[in-house]
Design a binder for these strands. Sequence first.
DNA 1: TTACTAATCTGCAAGCGTTGTTGACTGGGA
DNA 2: TCCCAGTCAACAACGCTTGCAGATTAGTAA
Lengths: 148, 148
Amino acid sequence: MHSPEELTQRFRERGLKVTPQRQAVFRVLYQNHTHPSAETVYEQVAEQMPTISLRTVYQTLNDLTDMGEILHLDLGTGSARFDSNVEDAHHHLVCEGCGMVRDVEADLDSLKFNEALPTGFRVSETEILVRGLCEHCLAKDQHRMAEA
Amino acid sequence: MHSPEELTQRFRERGLKVTPQRQAVFRVLYQNHTHPSAETVYEQVAEQMPTISLRTVYQTLNDLTDMGEILHLDLGTGSARFDSNVEDAHHHLVCEGCGMVRDVEADLDSLKFNEALPTGFRVSETEILVRGLCEHCLAKDQHRMAEA
DNA sequence: TTACTAATCTGCAAGCGTTGTTGACTGGGA
DNA sequence: TCCCAGTCAACAACGCTTGCAGATTAGTAA
């Protein structure tokens, strides 16, 4: 995504207004690369601006997604995650325990499909998702197993 | 998944009862390889058994998932999709227009990651998701564009 | 067959993440 | 400074899924 200052410009170009609420969301996303959920963004913005509503955060996230400034990810963690890195093509690794997400670079060109895709299908995106348990959740899991 | 007859056996072994409702769900899943949603399974079962409840379908789908007989997929289509093919490792292609899902075989071994995964992370599954528009939805889309 | 009981059924309410609505408010171009 | 399209907060409603409760039933053991 672009910097908060550049986003101000781009919002105005689109006839969208730049409010303090939106700027606060810009700043949080620009600094947070942990692929936060809307709720997490809301909590972080609310620290600076306690009156902001979750609805406004959703609205701004949707606007940014429409403008291609961020990515809306559905990683099966229950809620959507937002990724401010649209510049570098990358994939994701997800911990099924705590929902932690990390970027992973993979060479898509090396990927071979063993059959043709359906006729006329237009691919918009090929996504690789690595699911598993992070070090921390794995330890918790083994601890729980030991108890039972 | 196993055949309805074998599933009967396996359910009993687990102390689960085999009711007419469950058998109807078994049969629908065994024949339907289109990765139906719970709602779709419900509709198909309801044709034969109009009194079945959606709740029962969900319950049976969850039981089958727990037993590893089917896969519970979150492909970002709004509702979970259920895949009765657990035998052959495969990936999925999804139409973002109509939600159509098709299996795709890909050679995961050919996939190269450009960096190491986080220390201690245990991968449970690496999933490839091809998103796009099917021939039919693409045509509809272009038609809509032409109008506007 | 019969009787018993744990498992299951249905219908409804509730949970969660997200979006629609509404009336008051405000950014920012003229 | 004015003005109004765009935005805000609060609340209701949505779609998918699960929790709950009381009535019903599968399957075992006698």
